[in-house]
Amino acid sequence: MVRYSTRLLTPPREEEEIYPYRRVWPSLIIEMALLFGAAAVFFALDFVGFALPEPVNAPLSTGLALLPAGLWAIFSLWREQHVVQPRRRLLIVFVVSALAANALGVPLLDQTLDVTAWLSLTDTVERLLGYAFTMGAVQELIKYLILRWTIWPDDLRTRLDAVAYAAACAVGYATVINLHFVLDGFPPPDVAASRICFTVTMHLVPTCIVSYGLAQLRFSPTSFVLLPFTMLLALLFTGVGTAVRAGLINAGFSLGISTPNALFALALAFILLVAPMTSIAFIYVAAERRQQESEMGGDV
Protein backbone atom coordinates (compact mmCIF):
# COMPACT_ATOMS: atom_id res chain seq x y z
CA MET A 1 0.00 0.00 0.00
CA VAL A 2 1.33 3.32 -1.01
CA ARG A 3 1.46 5.97 1.68
CA TYR A 4 1.75 9.58 1.01
CA SER A 5 3.43 11.98 3.39
CA THR A 6 1.35 14.91 4.50
CA ARG A 7 4.35 17.18 4.00
CA LEU A 8 4.18 19.09 0.75
CA LEU A 9 7.19 19.74 -1.34
CA THR A 10 7.59 23.53 -1.54
CA PRO A 11 10.30 25.50 -3.22
CA PRO A 12 12.75 27.14 -0.80
CA ARG A 13 11.53 30.56 0.31
CA GLU A 14 13.40 33.45 -1.14
CA GLU A 15 14.92 35.70 1.49
CA GLU A 16 12.95 38.92 1.39
CA GLU A 17 15.17 41.96 1.43
CA ILE A 18 14.40 44.03 4.50
CA TYR A 19 14.31 47.77 3.92
CA PRO A 20 16.34 48.99 6.90
CA TYR A 21 15.03 52.58 7.04
CA ARG A 22 11.65 54.07 7.84
CA ARG A 23 9.73 54.93 4.68
CA VAL A 24 9.44 58.72 4.70
CA TRP A 25 6.74 59.46 2.13
CA PRO A 26 3.97 57.29 3.71
CA SER A 27 4.64 58.90 7.10
CA LEU A 28 4.42 62.39 5.62
CA ILE A 29 1.25 61.55 3.69
CA ILE A 30 -0.47 60.19 6.82
CA GLU A 31 0.58 63.18 8.92
CA MET A 32 -0.61 65.73 6.39
CA ALA A 33 -3.83 63.84 5.64
CA LEU A 34 -4.73 63.75 9.34
CA LEU A 35 -3.84 67.42 9.79
CA PHE A 36 -5.95 68.56 6.84
CA GLY A 37 -8.66 66.11 7.89
CA ALA A 38 -8.83 67.70 11.34
CA ALA A 39 -9.07 71.13 9.73
CA ALA A 40 -11.84 69.90 7.43
CA VAL A 41 -13.82 68.64 10.43
CA PHE A 42 -13.85 72.12 11.97
CA PHE A 43 -14.96 73.62 8.66
CA ALA A 44 -17.71 71.05 8.37
CA LEU A 45 -18.90 71.88 11.89
CA ASP A 46 -18.91 75.55 11.01
CA PHE A 47 -20.71 74.82 7.73
CA VAL A 48 -23.56 72.95 9.42
CA GLY A 49 -23.89 75.78 11.91
CA PHE A 50 -22.49 73.99 14.94
CA ALA A 51 -20.95 76.71 17.09
CA LEU A 52 -18.40 75.61 19.63
CA PRO A 53 -18.71 77.29 23.03
CA GLU A 54 -16.36 80.22 23.58
CA PRO A 55 -14.34 78.69 26.47
CA VAL A 56 -13.38 75.75 24.24
CA ASN A 57 -11.60 77.99 21.70
CA ALA A 58 -8.38 78.40 23.66
CA PRO A 59 -7.64 74.72 24.41
CA LEU A 60 -8.81 73.61 20.96
CA SER A 61 -6.69 76.15 19.12
CA THR A 62 -3.66 75.31 21.25
CA GLY A 63 -4.25 71.61 20.62
CA LEU A 64 -4.47 72.29 16.89
CA ALA A 65 -1.20 74.21 16.99
CA LEU A 66 0.47 71.22 18.65
CA LEU A 67 -1.21 68.70 16.33
CA PRO A 68 1.47 68.72 13.57
CA ALA A 69 4.17 68.05 16.17
CA GLY A 70 2.07 65.31 17.76
CA LEU A 71 1.40 63.62 14.43
CA TRP A 72 5.06 63.88 13.52
CA ALA A 73 6.05 62.35 16.88
CA ILE A 74 3.73 59.39 16.32
CA PHE A 75 4.17 58.68 12.62
CA SER A 76 7.80 59.69 12.17
CA LEU A 77 9.69 59.76 15.45
CA TRP A 78 8.03 56.78 17.13
CA ARG A 79 8.03 54.64 13.99
CA GLU A 80 11.68 55.45 13.53
CA GLN A 81 12.47 53.50 16.71
CA HIS A 82 11.09 50.30 15.17
CA VAL A 83 13.30 50.02 12.12
CA VAL A 84 16.68 48.38 11.74
CA GLN A 85 18.59 51.57 11.09
CA PRO A 86 16.80 54.55 12.61
CA ARG A 87 17.63 58.16 11.91
CA ARG A 88 19.05 59.12 15.25
CA ARG A 89 19.05 62.91 15.01
CA LEU A 90 15.41 63.55 14.19
CA LEU A 91 14.52 64.80 17.67
CA ILE A 92 17.62 66.98 17.89
CA VAL A 93 16.77 68.64 14.57
CA PHE A 94 13.15 69.16 15.69
CA VAL A 95 14.12 70.73 19.04
CA VAL A 96 16.91 72.93 17.66
CA SER A 97 14.59 74.11 14.90
CA ALA A 98 11.86 75.05 17.38
CA LEU A 99 14.32 76.85 19.64
CA ALA A 100 15.90 78.73 16.73
CA ALA A 101 12.46 79.78 15.48
CA ASN A 102 11.56 81.19 18.87
CA ALA A 103 14.91 82.82 19.60
CA LEU A 104 15.84 84.08 16.13
CA GLY A 105 13.18 83.70 13.46
CA VAL A 106 10.17 85.24 15.19
CA PRO A 107 12.00 88.26 16.75
CA LEU A 108 13.86 88.96 13.48
CA LEU A 109 10.70 89.03 11.40
CA ASP A 110 8.32 90.64 13.89
CA GLN A 111 10.57 93.19 15.53
CA THR A 112 13.67 93.87 13.45
CA LEU A 113 12.25 93.59 9.94
CA ASP A 114 8.66 94.33 11.07
CA VAL A 115 7.37 92.68 7.91
CA THR A 116 3.64 93.14 8.45
CA ALA A 117 3.96 96.89 9.02
CA TRP A 118 5.26 97.75 5.56
CA LEU A 119 4.88 94.73 3.24
CA SER A 120 1.11 94.57 3.53
CA LEU A 121 0.87 98.04 1.96
CA THR A 122 3.03 97.40 -1.11
CA ASP A 123 1.83 96.25 -4.55
CA THR A 124 1.66 92.56 -5.50
CA VAL A 125 5.09 92.17 -7.10
CA GLU A 126 6.88 94.05 -4.31
CA ARG A 127 4.95 92.07 -1.73
CA LEU A 128 5.87 88.78 -3.39
CA LEU A 129 9.58 89.67 -3.57
CA GLY A 130 9.44 91.25 -0.13
CA TYR A 131 8.03 88.14 1.53
CA ALA A 132 10.52 85.97 -0.39
CA PHE A 133 13.53 88.05 0.63
CA THR A 134 12.49 88.70 4.24
CA MET A 135 10.33 85.87 5.56
CA GLY A 136 11.70 83.31 3.10
CA ALA A 137 15.36 84.25 3.56
CA VAL A 138 15.23 84.35 7.37
CA GLN A 139 13.29 81.13 7.79
CA GLU A 140 15.04 79.09 5.14
CA LEU A 141 18.50 80.28 6.15
CA ILE A 142 17.85 79.27 9.76
CA LYS A 143 16.51 75.85 8.76
CA TYR A 144 19.30 75.30 6.24
CA LEU A 145 21.97 76.15 8.83
CA ILE A 146 20.36 73.76 11.32
CA LEU A 147 20.40 70.93 8.78
CA ARG A 148 23.90 71.87 7.66
CA TRP A 149 25.38 71.76 11.15
CA THR A 150 23.40 68.88 12.64
CA ILE A 151 23.10 66.19 9.99
CA TRP A 152 25.15 67.07 6.93
CA PRO A 153 26.92 64.96 5.64
CA ASP A 154 27.29 61.96 7.96
CA ASP A 155 23.62 61.43 8.80
CA LEU A 156 22.58 61.49 5.16
CA ARG A 157 22.94 57.80 4.38
CA THR A 158 20.27 57.79 1.67
CA ARG A 159 18.61 60.59 -0.24
CA LEU A 160 15.38 60.19 1.71
CA ASP A 161 17.22 60.93 4.97
CA ALA A 162 17.29 64.52 3.75
CA VAL A 163 13.46 64.53 3.45
CA ALA A 164 13.02 62.98 6.91
CA TYR A 165 15.28 65.56 8.56
CA ALA A 166 13.78 68.39 6.52
CA ALA A 167 10.31 67.40 7.72
CA ALA A 168 11.51 67.34 11.35
CA CYS A 169 13.05 70.78 10.90
CA ALA A 170 9.97 72.21 9.19
CA VAL A 171 7.48 70.83 11.72
CA GLY A 172 9.61 72.07 14.66
CA TYR A 173 9.78 75.57 13.19
CA ALA A 174 6.10 75.64 12.17
CA THR A 175 4.97 74.51 15.63
CA VAL A 176 6.54 77.58 17.24
CA ILE A 177 4.99 79.91 14.63
CA ASN A 178 1.61 78.27 15.16
CA LEU A 179 1.85 78.57 18.93
CA HIS A 180 2.67 82.27 18.60
CA PHE A 181 -0.38 82.67 16.37
CA VAL A 182 -2.91 80.90 18.59
CA LEU A 183 -1.60 82.29 21.88
CA ASP A 184 -2.09 85.80 20.50
CA GLY A 185 -5.84 85.99 20.99
CA PHE A 186 -7.02 82.38 20.65
CA PRO A 187 -8.83 82.50 17.30
CA PRO A 188 -11.81 80.21 16.57
CA PRO A 189 -10.72 76.63 15.74
CA ASP A 190 -11.66 76.79 12.03
CA VAL A 191 -9.59 79.95 11.52
CA ALA A 192 -6.73 78.47 13.56
CA ALA A 193 -6.89 75.18 11.63
CA SER A 194 -6.68 76.95 8.29
CA ARG A 195 -3.72 79.05 9.39
CA ILE A 196 -1.94 76.07 10.96
CA CYS A 197 -2.28 73.97 7.79
CA PHE A 198 -0.95 76.87 5.75
CA THR A 199 2.02 77.48 8.07
CA VAL A 200 2.99 73.81 8.07
CA THR A 201 2.76 73.75 4.27
CA MET A 202 4.82 76.92 3.94
CA HIS A 203 7.58 75.34 6.00
CA LEU A 204 7.42 71.75 4.80
CA VAL A 205 7.55 72.42 1.06
CA PRO A 206 10.46 74.92 0.97
CA THR A 207 12.52 72.84 3.39
CA CYS A 208 11.94 69.74 1.26
CA ILE A 209 13.00 71.72 -1.82
CA VAL A 210 16.26 72.67 -0.07
CA SER A 211 16.63 69.09 1.16
CA TYR A 212 16.82 67.93 -2.46
CA GLY A 213 19.74 70.28 -3.00
CA LEU A 214 21.43 68.96 0.13
CA ALA A 215 20.86 65.34 -0.89
CA GLN A 216 22.20 65.90 -4.39
CA LEU A 217 25.23 67.71 -3.03
CA ARG A 218 25.86 64.75 -0.73
CA PHE A 219 25.41 61.94 -3.28
CA SER A 220 26.05 63.55 -6.68
CA PRO A 221 28.17 66.64 -6.07
CA THR A 222 28.60 67.60 -9.70
CA SER A 223 27.51 71.24 -9.57
CA PHE A 224 27.77 73.82 -6.80
CA VAL A 225 24.83 75.77 -8.23
CA LEU A 226 22.06 73.28 -7.44
CA LEU A 227 21.82 73.89 -3.69
CA PRO A 228 21.70 77.71 -4.01
CA PHE A 229 19.15 77.27 -6.80
CA THR A 230 16.92 75.14 -4.57
CA MET A 231 17.31 77.77 -1.85
CA LEU A 232 16.22 80.50 -4.26
CA LEU A 233 13.27 78.35 -5.32
CA ALA A 234 12.32 77.87 -1.66
CA LEU A 235 12.44 81.64 -1.05
CA LEU A 236 10.24 82.31 -4.08
CA PHE A 237 7.79 79.64 -2.96
CA THR A 238 7.49 81.36 0.41
CA GLY A 239 6.99 84.72 -1.29
CA VAL A 240 4.39 83.51 -3.76
CA GLY A 241 2.48 81.46 -1.17
CA THR A 242 2.30 84.24 1.41
CA ALA A 243 1.40 86.96 -1.09
CA VAL A 244 -1.26 84.85 -2.82
CA ARG A 245 -2.80 83.84 0.50
CA ALA A 246 -3.00 87.46 1.64
CA GLY A 247 -4.70 88.45 -1.61
CA LEU A 248 -7.05 85.49 -1.64
CA ILE A 249 -8.45 85.41 1.87
CA ASN A 250 -8.55 89.09 2.82
CA ALA A 251 -12.11 90.24 3.18
CA GLY A 252 -13.29 92.50 0.39
CA PHE A 253 -14.90 95.87 0.97
CA SER A 254 -18.61 95.62 1.59
CA LEU A 255 -21.30 97.56 3.35
CA GLY A 256 -22.28 94.53 5.42
CA ILE A 257 -20.10 92.35 7.63
CA SER A 258 -17.12 91.02 5.66
CA THR A 259 -14.96 88.23 7.03
CA PRO A 260 -11.82 86.59 5.67
CA ASN A 261 -12.48 83.39 3.78
CA ALA A 262 -10.59 80.74 5.74
CA LEU A 263 -11.90 77.94 3.53
CA PHE A 264 -10.06 79.44 0.51
CA ALA A 265 -6.93 79.52 2.65
CA LEU A 266 -7.30 75.84 3.51
CA ALA A 267 -7.86 74.92 -0.15
CA LEU A 268 -4.86 77.00 -1.15
CA ALA A 269 -2.71 75.32 1.51
CA PHE A 270 -3.80 71.92 0.19
CA ILE A 271 -2.88 72.82 -3.40
CA LEU A 272 0.42 74.36 -2.31
CA LEU A 273 1.20 71.18 -0.40
CA VAL A 274 0.16 68.48 -2.84
CA ALA A 275 1.44 69.87 -6.16
CA PRO A 276 5.02 70.71 -5.11
CA MET A 277 5.42 67.67 -2.82
CA THR A 278 4.37 65.35 -5.66
CA SER A 279 6.98 66.99 -7.88
CA ILE A 280 9.63 66.74 -5.16
CA ALA A 281 8.86 63.06 -4.60
CA PHE A 282 9.09 62.45 -8.36
CA ILE A 283 12.44 64.25 -8.58
CA TYR A 284 13.78 62.25 -5.62
CA VAL A 285 12.70 58.96 -7.21
CA ALA A 286 14.23 59.97 -10.53
CA ALA A 287 17.53 60.92 -8.86
CA GLU A 288 17.61 57.64 -6.95
CA ARG A 289 16.90 55.68 -10.15
CA ARG A 290 19.60 57.55 -12.05
CA GLN A 291 22.11 56.70 -9.35
CA GLN A 292 21.10 53.03 -9.33
CA GLU A 293 21.38 52.88 -13.12
CA SER A 294 24.79 54.50 -13.09
CA GLU A 295 25.95 52.06 -10.38
CA MET A 296 24.62 49.10 -12.35
CA GLY A 297 26.32 50.43 -15.46
CA GLY A 298 29.55 50.73 -13.48
CA ASP A 299 29.25 47.13 -12.24
CA VAL A 300 28.84 45.80 -15.78
Binding site: Y144, P153, L217, F224, L227, P228, L235
Partner: peptide, 19 residues
Protein backbone atom coordinates in the same frame (compact mmCIF):
# COMPACT_ATOMS: atom_id res chain seq x y z
CA UNK B 1 32.13 71.67 -4.98
CA UNK B 2 30.33 70.96 -1.70
CA UNK B 3 32.16 73.73 0.16
CA UNK B 4 31.51 76.27 -2.62
CA UNK B 5 27.88 75.23 -2.75
CA UNK B 6 27.38 75.87 0.97
CA UNK B 7 29.12 79.26 0.80
CA UNK B 8 27.09 80.22 -2.25
CA UNK B 9 23.82 79.20 -0.56
CA UNK B 10 24.55 81.31 2.51
CA UNK B 11 25.52 84.19 0.20
CA UNK B 12 22.17 83.89 -1.64
CA UNK B 13 20.27 84.22 1.66
CA UNK B 14 22.39 87.13 2.89
CA UNK B 15 21.99 88.84 -0.50
CA UNK B 16 18.22 88.35 -0.31
CA UNK B 17 18.14 89.85 3.18
CA UNK B 18 20.15 92.88 2.03
CA UNK B 19 17.72 93.43 -0.85
Amino acid sequence: VQRFSHYFTISVCIGALLI
